[in-house]
Design a protein around this nucleic acid. Structure first.
Lengths: 258, 258
DNA sequence: ACGCATGCGAGACAATGTATCGCAAGCGTG
DNA sequence: CACGCTTGCGATACATTGTCTCGCATGCGT
């Protein structure tokens, strides 16, 4: 594909060094004339995605918002693709996930973190859409991970179990946010509302068939009432934490075998 | 926007009835000449997404695969947008989630379902990408839900708690699949592998700072070894199920208050 | 066998992400 | 203080996408 692939150990290593494989450690625009910074760009991008969805965040739109030209976004944000812009946005959002005063009790701490992550997810619904694409974990994401691990620091657990715990919790929160957003019918990606409505009827007609006795007991898919959402979230979270507690608060039982 | 919006109760209601707001109850192409069916189209779309990712599934590509013209896909699949194709694909995948012989014990049953969902998710990684977009729940999705509810039929629980249980479990599975796929570095959306590699170095450098003592204990982000993935999955699932068991197997304690 | 309504699909179109490379801006030098 | 070169910004161009628009062939009713 690339006609002249320079040998990795070529005599002229400085010919055209691709900026850096990673967005995070890329030198700032540093020119004095720079009217835009990476921070400004990312801070402009996030509200757009917040209020109008990821799809509305086009390079041109973002540029217009900043009163700049499309390619300037690439230049000043030091990104080589839109995907990298998403990486930056994600990391910004990760910063919001860090809890200030982490409770000492591991369970309280995890609850605090999980609650915070949930809030952030609800504030930036587009983040859920990005989870599907493999997004890289940046500095703030790392900080968030560190804090979650810190929550477990009091427990004497082997590292892999700790990892399993935080994966389980993070996992639960993300999944919860995803489902709740889907079901609540908050039109994250707008335009789908009409169908959501028709869907209720459709579900009802399916149930009327009699082929779904258990569903019938619950009624149609029943968007979870807003006021119950947090209750459900905490309920499930406590189930998970209780389960973890059993493993965690018993002596270091190394059941490593399958 | 629409210049002549016909009054909902207009004298000529049959002027141009939009097919149906919902994909599922839309009449089949029914013409004898139809060389393509909805099933064929969806069945052709899924392998493309499976092997090359959602992004590779363009209308033109799909049409080419079927030796048809782009717009034929819309016509014969009875869809009005690509999004609806995703809906159909999702529902097809939901069919695979249905377990044949559901164990009688609720816990075993949930474990079986969760395991199956996980398998399906790993087989169709693109599904995770769709979770973010509000995808509508179709007939097979409904069947899957019904089965999950059936798993809990033995328990005497109020409907909302049952719902909470299945949301918690489904939530956990989806989140797990999401995270595990991200971390394993299986390039769902290919092309990101190089960065994944650079990321490891970057993480290491962050840890070397000393600012991440707890992370240091675990090592860098450490993609979960493939052989441990299922163990982790089952571990977390059991935590969740154990927690649920506590609530579920105690007398109907209606703690409805916040 | 004929004419018409139906609905398929070839082409057109707008929008998007991004490659390219000319040109002006800044710095070092005389 | 003036000049020339290098750097890197950004105007333009382009390929690719999803989807609209009707013209026209198709199959049916009579």
């Amino acid at each position: 594909m690339n006609p002249s692939r320079p040998d990795p150990a070529a005599p002229r290593p400085d010919t055209e060094e691709p900026p850096s494989p990673l967005v995070w450690d890329r030198p700032p625009p540093d020119r004095r004339r720079a009217p835009l910074t990476r921070e400004i760009i990312v801070s402009a991008a996030i509200p757009i995605a917040d209020s109008e969805g990821l799809a509305a965040l086009t390079v041109r739109r973002l540029a217009a918002e900043l009163d700049a030209r499309p390619m300037s976004v690439y230049s000043y944000a030091r990104i080589t693709s839109k995907e990298e812009l998403f990486d930056l946005m994600t990391d910004q959002v990760c910063a919001e996930m860090i809890v200030d005063d982490l409770p000492g009790d591991w369970r309280e701490a995890l609850r605090a973190i999980a609650g915070r992550v949930r809030e952030v997810l609800l504030r930036h619904p587009w983040w859920v859409e990005l989870i599907g694409h493999n997004v890289l974990i940046g500095p703030n994401g790392t900080r968030h991970r560190e804090q979650t691990l810190a929550a477990l620091s009091g427990l004497r657990l082997d590292p892999s179990t700790k990892l399993a715990v935080i994966v389980a919790v993070e996992t639960y929160v993300v999944g919860q946010a995803t489902f709740v957003m889907d079901e609540e019918g908050s039109p994250r990606v707008p335009g789908r509302t009409a169908e959501q409505e028709a869907l209720a009827q459709y579900q009802a007609s399916l149930i009327a068939t009699g082929a779904f006795p258990h569903l019938a007991g619950i009624g149609p898919v029943q968007p979870i009432p807003v006021r119950d959402r947090e209750r459900y979230f905490l309920l499930g979270l406590d189930w998970l934490l209780s389960g973890i507690a059993v493993t965690v608060e018993s002596p270091p039982d190394d059941a490593a075998s399958s």
